[in-house]
Write a protein that binds this DNA or RNA. Structure first.
Lengths: 265, 265
DNA sequence: GGGTATTTGTCCGTATGTATT
DNA sequence: AAATACATACGGACAAATACC
């Protein structure tokens, strides 16, 4: 039974205080100088302990102000298995806490449109050779002004030459891109596949979502298929894991019971 | 444009070398002493840079040996929207790389059975009052001997008193628990809901999966419903995000295209 | 097994910079 | 401007794990 290093012991002690509520979410931890006296350790050792908890997202440090227990936002719950075609932006999103929850509103930035050579993953999903030109439409999405997700949709360049010219416009397609493709090209969405992965965020995402540099995000690849089972669109959406959850319904299921988890033991 | 701190510059430089392949996966980084000369920085500054990459999972340090670029295992891809009843253990799992992929085999430990007071999340999903006694069956699951997931299923205690006594036995229910409940209690699974979340791993999970202390895991809550839409089982499965991905199919979709992502820019 | 060199881990001290109040 | 609190960067000393002879 080897003894744990001092900084880990301190981290464990603080973690317990956070979990049992001695240190409530949002409250300030003792300053480094105080902790130093409290545990009779050097400042660097205290900082190692704090860094450990900080990198796990339990606490966050604010220069000049202090160290605080992280407050977790009320998670957004997104239903992945909705019926195709009947969803518009932000629909399918619900919230864990229903107490006093006025209806929240999703919004998005006007799209950034680019023509790119398709990355390997995108090309494979669109079933085009890697490096093929594709149209990319990128949007920032918010819920009640809170950064929610970053979404990029990819369409085959061929759709443009076949007449779906509005895909190149840096403006919302009010009627919905799927509807528009149906009108212009006779394509309709008969199904889609979501591919859910997780990874650490990059610096763009870190800045947009205002999350610590090493926190993780969901990256969901949605491939939409037309009536001939050909891919018509690939949408990559990045969700920070601290505020997003997903629901998948299979078969005959009732309405979900929304419930907060109890604090981990 | 403020200049970045030295340790972050060093981290960035090393990150680039990892991404562009100068430092290949599995290869050893220069030692701290070498890096110190290379960047003309103190050992602690080098260590701060290394820690930054280490906490992001890009590199891992092995005491007495050196620092190495992380090798990522071939991800397991799990299909969440399979038809109920037709799945046994490990089915629905495929692999990204198909090159020379002999059929891999899933296995699991014999279950650990406990009777517990239901946590809030479990109770809400089973639709019983919090604190109600429930049967918990916990198993470690492997693929080709590689730790894959940790699974705990919860059943209402009432099932035992109604005769499904084998739920209390610490042994596999060969025929499958769902089938068994059908035979004994006339319950059959008409649907399920998966609730996908992510969080940082705890120390048990860290040890079992052999992952760094602050890496994240998927936590999937699967609630199974019977013909009357009543919950009959809640299964909580923990998957490390570094080796697991999920697929959700909706509507009419073709077979997936498995494809590795290209290295992030 | 033992001894030694190498490499990372822990812990301390100090000085200075930057952000906030 | 001054005080407070965290961030960066340097230095040193010893411990623990590993590899090699």
């Amino acid at each position: 039974m080897a003894e744990q290093p001092l900084y880990q012991q301190i981290a464990e002690d603080l973690r317990k205080q956070i979990h049992d509520g001695t240190l409530a979410p949002g409250s300030q931890l003792p300053t480094e100088t105080d902790l130093r006296k409290q545990y009779d350790a050097s400042r660097n050792t205290i900082r190692d302990a704090v860094k450990r908890l900080s990198s796990q997202g339990l606490i966050e440090t604010r220069p000049g102000r202090g160290t605080f227990v992280t407050t977790r936002p009320d998670p957004f719950v997104f239903v992945l298995t909705a019926q195709p075609g009947q969803l518009s932006v932000g629909e399918g999103v619900t919230y864990l806490s229903t107490v006093g929850a006025e209806k929240r509103k999703a919004s998005m930035s006007t799209p950034t449109v680019e023509v790119q050579a398709a990355r390997t993953v995108i090309a494979a999903r669109l079933r085009v050779p890697p490096g093929t030109q594709v149209v990319s439409r990128h949007q920032e999405r918010f819920i009640d002004g809170f950064p929610w997700s970053l979404q990029t949709s990819f369409y085959p360049m061929e759709f443009i030459t076949r007449g779906a010219i509005r895909l190149l416009m840096a403006e919302d397609i009010e009627v919905g891109a799927v509807q528009y493709l149906g009108d212009m090209l006779g394509l309709s969405q008969f199904g889609y596949r979501d591919w859910i992965t997780a990874r650490t965020c990059d610096s763009n995402e870190q800045a947009f979502f205002r999350i610590p540099h090493d926190s993780t995000v969901f990256e969901v690849f949605r491939t939409a298929f037309d009536q001939k089972k050909n891919p018509m669109r690939v949408t990559v959406t990045v969700f920070p894991t601290d505020r997003n959850q997903f629901i998948v319904n299979v078969g005959d299921v009732p309405e979900p019971e929304y419930s907060q988890d109890d604090p981990p033991a």
